[in-house]
């Protein structure tokens, strides 16, 4: 398709430590079209942030390594391009919003200078006007560009971080838990603003979060990540439609959230813990916690099953092999 912006093909990332390797991302394939927003959902340690850092080539050198796969952005494999080109792409074409607005700003520069820096690095010699414009876009009075980060509240700082990320009108925005550190009323304001700006600028977005509610309000597509794999992928409606078949992990995730609109007294959590990525279980990574686990699951990981309308599930429950074994 022509408007394909980003394509990940079987990306695998590991971190080297002295004693063992940590398998953080284990074969992720994804596609993102222009203007789309994708929600990447998973628990701590699922590899969500690692995946985002791999796209930007920001994995710590010598420790983190993409050892297999391709990351194709506008026809270019980002894993092959030289560092100099990568520096052009970062900020200009792909930018990232980090989780914690309190630590992602430099305390000794004014916020105006910090936003201007992005613009200057990408060749804008007179960024002042653009700084005012972008501050206006995120709802901050441009006269406050001479203030330092500590003079702003948490929600305002996150707006400034978003302003920096959007200053060059990138094609792709990677937002890593952009509202997790904020209060709900401020979260609602920031999410509404991101949604609004995304529509105005036509930016694509990958939103990393553990909050299914946030995904439901902002994303078009959803990928559920577990132990470095995408176990379920589909449009928002496919993944959230309770009448469709789902991956047992997705079912567990939904069962774990107390629902504001129902009166169920007991939650139905997933038992056990997420596996240690340096010591992943045999077979399907979710099998030790899964209610539907069979012998087959313990032996080998499931193949990907894609339904006719593109709803992807990685589970033996839906593969032909399992049905044959059952018969």
């Amino acid at each position: 398709m022509e408007n394909k912006l980003l394509e990940l093909k079987d990306v695998r990332v590991k971190y080297h430590t002295l004693d063992y390797d940590v398998m953080a991302v284990n074969g992720v394939s994804l596609e993102l079209n222009k203007g789309e927003s994708l929600g990447l959902v998973g628990e701590t340690g699922a590899g969500k942030t690692t995946l985002a850092l791999s796209i930007l080539g920001l994995l710590p050198k010598g420790v983190g390594e993409v050892y297999e796969g391709e990351i194709i952005f506008k026809g270019e494999d980002l894993l092959q391009v030289p560092e100099k080109r990568m520096r052009d792409i970062r900020g200009m074409h792909i930018s990232m919003i980090f989780q914690d607005p309190m630590t992602s700003l430099n305390p000794v520069y004014t916020v105006g200078d910090q936003i201007a820096e992005v613009l200057q690095l990408h060749g804008n010699k007179h960024p002042d006007e653009r700084v005012d414009e972008i501050l206006g876009l995120v709802g901050i009075d441009p006269s406050r560009k001479v203030c330092y980060p500590h003079q702003f509240s948490g929600g305002m700082k996150q707006r400034i971080v978003i302003a920096m990320a959007l200053a060059c009108e990138p094609d792709l925005l990677l937002a890593d838990e952009p509202t997790t550190a904020l209060d709900v009323t401020i979260q609602a304001q920031v999410l509404a603003m991101i949604d609004d700006i995304q529509k105005k600028l036509g930016t694509s977005m990958i939103l990393i979060t553990h909050d299914l509610g946030v995904v439901a309000e902002t994303c078009d597509k959803v990928a559920i990540m577990y132990a470095g794999e995408i176990v379920e992928y589909g449009t928002l409606h496919q993944v959230f439609d309770k009448t469709r078949p789902h991956h047992p992990y997705t079912v567990g995730l939904f069962g774990s959230i107390p629902d504001l609109s129902s009166d169920k007294r007991r939650l139905e959590p997933i038992y056990g813990m997420t596996p240690d990525p340096s010591d992943l279980p045999e077979g399907c990574y979710f099998s030790p916690r899964c209610n539907h686990c069979t012998e087959l699951c313990k032996q080998k990981g499931a193949a990907i099953h894609v339904s006719e309308d593109g709803h992807m599930l990685k589970c033996h429950l839906f593969t032909q092999e399992n049905k044959e074994a059952a018969e």
């Binding site: 709900v184 009323t185 609602a188 509404a192 509610g213 439901a216 409606h237 959230f240 959230i257």
Partner: peptide, 19 residues
């Protein structure tokens, strides 16, 4: 406060929210 909470249900997305 109640209307600011994101609800994990896409059908509620179109609902008007009081920010």
């Amino acid at each position: 406060l109640l209307s600011a909470v994101p609800i994990p249900d896409p059908a509620r997305r179109t609902m008007e929210r009081q920010l």
